[in-house]
Design a protein around this nucleic acid. Structure first.
Lengths: 330, 330
DNA sequence: TTGTAAGCGTTATCAA
DNA sequence: TTGATAACGCTTACAA
């Protein structure tokens, strides 16, 4: 096996305590001894055992991260943001993916407990009684991304989805859309499902349109479901504008319209949500609400750090968003 | 803080050793005591401290993973494969991203050493003397993805890029392309750069074409560089087929061709590499060599496990690939 | 079948 | 300024 601190101490002719002091820069060490230790450290390539240190200090400098799915480029960006911000703060990332499955999520909470991570960044769509139980038991900072779950121990990082959807809808209306439709996400997803739907509705009502006259379809955030939803909408009503609850569904919708030879944006305007990297290069390029997932990841780590530093911190952190107009709208 | 094994022992009226035996299923425990311990475990939600256990057992059940960039959906898929396979084998993933920067990579090797990970899965493009030094010092399994680095301690998982590029080129020729060009990756990237270029060349030469008559451009695997490369190629020569060293560059090329009103595939056929998820939905959809990054990730974990189990294992593991024909070729 | 005790590699305390 | 020692929480001989 590798060397331990005693070996280094022997090689440098000092005690383990002195070696520890040199490594951590704690306490005073005579310059001569310090140099000798440094030299041995350099020569041997010794690295202190983080397990032993963690055991003693009750701190691992590791954060546990749970995301639904890395295939979704948004979450990949999110994790990238977390990883980069973690790195610059001397933290490591223990990564898990849950597919939004509650059983998995709970088992990861427990795994993180075993591994004694310093904090957890959680991105999931539902928060059950079981989640709550685990949370009660845990005594580490807990950051949630993408939802507003009510719990005193939770810090939530999210965008104001309702307002964003409201603005996007208003934009479509301002560009002449009169017969609007929406491809919603599942409503049990409070943020990307319900709140976006709710913002859309608000704009519609404000315009004096009867919600009953609106044709809605629900998708599962996949490209395919967007395609199907668009088809189903057009079979029921002639529309001239559609808001999708995410870019994938919007792209699916565009694909259907293109397949049918329907002109975008002249006949139908399409607006997405998230600003997926695909949206910019797609043909036609997609107008959308940009949410910066990379930045969101960094934000979560910062929130974690502030919490551990006992800085006062908002329980609900609002992320900025941005309306990006491309070719799929006028 | 949380409970420890002594607390559990006290609560169950047994010794810590007995609790340990129950938790790990080692040694014999009287049924009655076992039930009592199990009950306390259940009630308290106690989780053993993995740090203490790891310290003692010299094993953490954690693998360190280094990838260049999670923004690249291929690597995101790769990590997903790793994570899923790791999970099913009771392993956790410590994730880092390096941007292909050697300094970062080396520092992650050292971080992993501190954290006492059980193995490392490394995806990078270059292997320097410094990499070699770190490798020599390490005594854990080391799996490399996407390159063939020569080193006795290394297990490499990769596709036969040369043959794949050769086949792709042959396909274009079989479909009538006579004036071919290639958008290469940087040649210092042995696999995705050099080997793919080399396979292209081989097919060209075999066709009796003088390599000097071929117009080549080098990109950096980004969409933008593909766009620029296509522009530059067309300014120098009229071609009817192009192979790009990855899908992003191929998509950039397509975008340029579409912008210029050049018909795909009638005037120019385009072939990519990797099978990015975008490639299928792009307009026109992109023909490509599919490399299953998710599967590759699983493969790396399996290679790691086989190594630790002392199973005989190939030092060079070949991944399958697949020619996928879509609308960008005939 | 059970419990005691040693030891894994650190850091912090305290005395020298 | 330095070093001996205890402690972190666990597993495993070994003894009972």
């Amino acid at each position: 096996m590798g060397l331990n601190i005693k070996d280094i101490a022997k090689l440098a002719g000092v005690s383990p305590a002195t070696v520890s002091r040199v490594i951590n820069g704690t306490g005073n060490v005579a310059e001569e001894n310090k140099q000798r230790v440094l030299k041995v450290l350099e020569e041997t390539g010794y690295k202190p055992n983080a397990l032993a240190r963690g055991l003693l200090m009750n701190k691992t400098n590791v954060i546990g991260v749970i995301v639904p799915d890395l295939s979704n480029i948004n979450f990949a960006e999110f994790v990238k943001g977390i990883e980069n911000e973690a790195k610059s703060n001397g933290l490591s990332v223990l990564l898990t993916t849950s597919e939004n499955d509650t059983d998995s999520e709970i088992s990861y909470f427990q795994l993180f407990k075993e591994k004694r991570v310093d904090g957890i960044i959680f991105s999931g769509t539902i928060f059950t009684e079981r989640h709550r139980e685990e949370l009660e038991k845990a005594d580490i900072p807990f950051i949630v991304f993408g939802q507003w779950f009510e719990h005193p121990k939770l810090t939530c990082v999210n965008v104001d989805n309702e307002r964003a959807a409201y603005e996007a809808t208003k934009y479509l209306i301002s560009k002449g859309a009169k017969n609007l439709s929406m491809i919603m996400g599942p409503l049990w997803d409070r943020s990307a499902g319900y709140d976006r739907y709710s913002g859309f509705l608000k704009a519609i009502v404000e315009e004096g349109i009867n919600p009953k006259d609106i044709v809605l379809e629900e998708g599962d955030f996949s490209i395919k479901s967007g395609y199907k939803a668009m088809k189903s909408i057009l079979e029921r009503k002639k529309i001239d504008g559609v808001l999708a609850a995410n870019d994938f569904m919007a792209l699916g919708a565009i694909k259907y319209l293109v397949d049918k030879g329907i002109n975008i944006p002249d006949e139908v305007q399409v607006m997405g949500f998230d600003d997926n990297i695909i949206s910019e290069i797609y043909n036609p390029s997609l107008s959308t609400i940009k949410i910066d997932f990379y930045e969101a990841g960094k934000m979560c780590v910062k929130a974690f750090i502030d919490t551990t530093d006992n800085k006062p911190i908002d329980k609900n952190i609002l992320l900025p968003y941005q309306l990006i107009i491309r070719r799929s709208t006028k």
